[in-house]
Design a protein around this nucleic acid. Structure first.
Length: 231
DNA sequence: TTGTGTTTTACGACCTCC
DNA sequence: GGAGGTCGTAAAACACAA
């Protein structure tokens, strides 16, 4: 840890302390200057723009870098409290907070910038979780609907098979009946509407037949594939 | 103790607004 | 043009498992 810098908890750090720090590290790179743990020499930040930095710029950058240290719990609590009230930081407020907490206004500004970034990330995570939950729920609903479709399709298929069997049975009955004295037809080209049936006859004494338009129909019939068939 | 992952502090580059 | 914003990133500080 950078003990030389961290020993000063209140901004501004003395230039002397910072300079000592810089000098010690520039000369040695392995000592903090106070006999404590070695201080890692910080890598110079890469520059996106022009690389024509002067030595003065380097020194200033080093001084700025060596200011870094953790804020105290009290400072963080007060900053959080302030952030709760207002996420933006106008100039007067920044100066006021900095004065109250003994921080550099620049530190307050940076803290708010970082805090806004964290807040935004948190919001994004919450939004993502919400959307994911909704999506999962939708997928589940879709699965349920699809299984329902499969089930109903199977039922429909079974019903169609049943209809086909009964249709064939009716045709067989018709054929056998036609060979005897009574004759009737179950065929129809159009579905009759608004009619009333009354039992007129039976097939094999147990299937009732109904008369309409001089044709015989079975009980519980439905129009199916050009025929009236019973269910 | 050390390696590693996460959080915090700080900065540069770039953008917008007044 | 300056102040203050976001974004991306460096590096210290910290937590924690091995």
């Amino acid at each position: 840890m950078d003990q030389t810098v961290l020993s000063s908890q209140v901004y501004p750090y003395t230039i002397q302390t910072q300079s000592e720090c810089i000098i010690v590290n520039q000369i040695d790179g392995s000592s903090s200057g106070d006999g404590s743990k070695p201080v890692k020499r910080r890598r110079k930040r890469r520059s996106k723009g022009s690389s024509s930095a002067t030595n003065e710029d380097d020194v200033r950058a080093m001084e700025r870098m060596f200011r870094k240290r953790k804020l105290t719990d009290e400072q963080v609590i007060m900053l959080e409290y302030s952030f709760e009230n207002e996420h933006k930081l106008e100039s007067g407020r920044k100066e006021k907070i900095a004065g109250e907490l003994g921080l550099d206004p620049r530190q307050v500004a940076v803290w708010f910038q970082n805090r806004r970034a964290r807040w935004k990330n948190k919001k994004l995570e919450e939004e993502y979780a919400k959307l994911k939950s909704q999506h999962d729920s939708d997928v589940l609903g879709q699965c349920q609907l699809e299984s329902q479709v499969i089930k109903l399709t199977e039922q429909l298929s079974e019903a169609q098979n049943e209809i086909r069997k009964l249709s064939e049975l009716v045709v067989v009955q018709e054929t056998s009946t036609n060979s005897s004295s009574s004759s009737f037809s179950i065929e129809a080209n159009d579905a009759p509407t608004d009619f009333e049936f009354s039992p007129m006859d039976t097939i094999n004494d147990n299937i009732p037949l109904y008369m309409l338009d001089n044709n015989y129909y079975l009980q519980n019939m439905e129009y199916w594939d050009g025929l009236y068939v019973q269910f």
